Simulated assay, not measured.
Amino acid sequence: MTADVWLPLPPDEIEGLPAGPEYRFWNGEKDFPADPADCSFYVVPYMKPAEVVVRPLPQLGSVQVVQTLSAGIDSLEPGLKHLRPGVQVCNARGVHEASTAELALTLILASLRGVPDFVRGQELGEWRGGFRPALADKSVLIVGYGSIGSAIEDRLVPFEVARVVRVARSARTTERGPVHPLTDLPRLLPEADVVVLITPLTESTRGLAGADFLARMKDGALLVNVARGPVVDTKALLAELESGRITAALDVTDPEPLPREHPLWKAPGVLISPHVGGPTSAFLPRAKRLIVNQLTRFVNREPLANVILTTGSPDA
C-alpha cells in the first residue's frame, strides 16, 4: 500500500503506526501536505471549526475512510455530500468516555454544592456557609445512553444516587436495566432531579431540550449539557433560568463560543465551562491508540471499529 494517510498529529509522535502508507501531517493549516486526491485515510483534525475540517473533502477522490477524533460527526456532516459512495466514516468511541464523564460529574457536583458561589465568596473574602443539595439520593436521567452515558453512570453509582434512568433513541435492555426510548421523555422528565444530555447532534435531537422539555422538568431540577449546544433551545433555557425554576450546567452552548455580551453568561443559576469535556490529558494516549488500531485494521484489510455510516448507503 502506497496511498497517503493524513494525520492531525506528527507521525513520529505516534508509536506503532503500521508500515505501508505514506503518512502526511495536516492539522488544518492553509496548505495541504500533499495532493488530497492521493489520500486514502483522513483523520480529521480535532477541535477545529467545521469549515476547516470539511475543506479537503471535495478533493478526496480516492479516500476510503474518514476518522474523527470526536465522539460526534456533526462538524463533518455538511461536507459528507462531497464524498464518493462507499466511504466509511468512523467516530472516536473509546477516546472521550473518561474525560467527558469526569466533567459531567464535576458539573453536577459543583452546581449542586454551590462551588461557583464559594469561588465568588473567596474572591470577596466572604464565608458563605449553609446547607446545599447533595447528589446522594437524587434521581438522575441520562438522555443519550451510549458509551459516554454509560461511563457517566459508572461514576454516579458510588455517590449513592437514588436511581439512574437511561434514555436513548430506541429502547433496549442492558445489564443495569432498561434503556427507554426518547418518546418516554415526557413521562420521565418530571421525576428527575438531574437531567444529563449526552446525545449526538442530529436533526432529531436539535432543539430537543426546548420549551416543552424544560417545562416538564421538576422545580429545582438541574440540567447538564455535555452533548452539543444546539441540543438545547437557548432562548427557552434562558426563560427558565430567569424564572429561577431550574438551574443548568453547560459545557456546550448555542452559539459557541458564547459571545461576551450574551445574556447566558449572567443568567441566574447557570455554570458554564468552555467545551472542555474532551480535551484533557486522557485524550492524546487514547486518540493515538485509536489511530494505530484503525490503521492496522485498514492496512490488514480487517473490519474497522466505530463505523457510524457509509456514504451512499440508504441510512447515511
Rank of each mutant, 00 (worst) to 15 (best):
residue 168 A to R: 00
residue 111 S to T: 06
residue 77 E to V: 14
residue 92 A to V: 08
residue 159 F to T: 08
residue 144 G to Y: 05
residue 93 R to I: 07
residue 162 A to P: 10
residue 177 G to S: 03
residue 97 E to P: 05
residue 115 V to G: 03
residue 46 Y to L: 01
residue 66 V to Y: 10
residue 77 E to A: 12
residue 50 A to D: 14
residue 75 S to Q: 14
residue 171 A to E: 00
residue 42 Y to M: 00
residue 56 P to L: 05
residue 141 L to H: 03
residue 108 I to M: 15
residue 168 A to G: 03
residue 65 V to K: 10
residue 58 P to L: 09
residue 142 I to L: 14
residue 52 V to L: 05
residue 65 V to W: 12
residue 137 D to N: 14
residue 176 R to M: 09
residue 158 P to D: 04
residue 45 P to F: 10
residue 47 M to H: 12
residue 44 V to W: 01
residue 169 R to C: 02
residue 151 A to R: 14
residue 70 S to H: 05
residue 56 P to H: 10
residue 127 W to N: 08
residue 136 A to M: 04
residue 175 E to K: 14
residue 110 A to E: 01
residue 64 Q to K: 15
residue 40 S to A: 15
residue 67 Q to P: 09
residue 149 G to Q: 08
residue 172 R to M: 02
residue 96 H to R: 11
residue 139 S to N: 14
residue 60 L to H: 11
residue 54 V to H: 09
residue 128 R to A: 07
residue 164 V to Y: 12
residue 161 V to E: 00
residue 40 S to F: 02
residue 81 K to Y: 05
residue 46 Y to I: 01
residue 108 I to Y: 04
residue 168 A to H: 00
residue 52 V to P: 09
residue 57 L to W: 12
residue 85 P to M: 10
residue 96 H to V: 04
residue 93 R to T: 13
residue 119 V to P: 07
residue 136 A to D: 01
residue 154 D to M: 08
residue 162 A to S: 15
residue 53 V to R: 10
residue 167 V to L: 04
residue 83 L to W: 13
residue 93 R to W: 06
residue 54 V to Y: 11
residue 86 G to M: 10
residue 151 A to V: 10
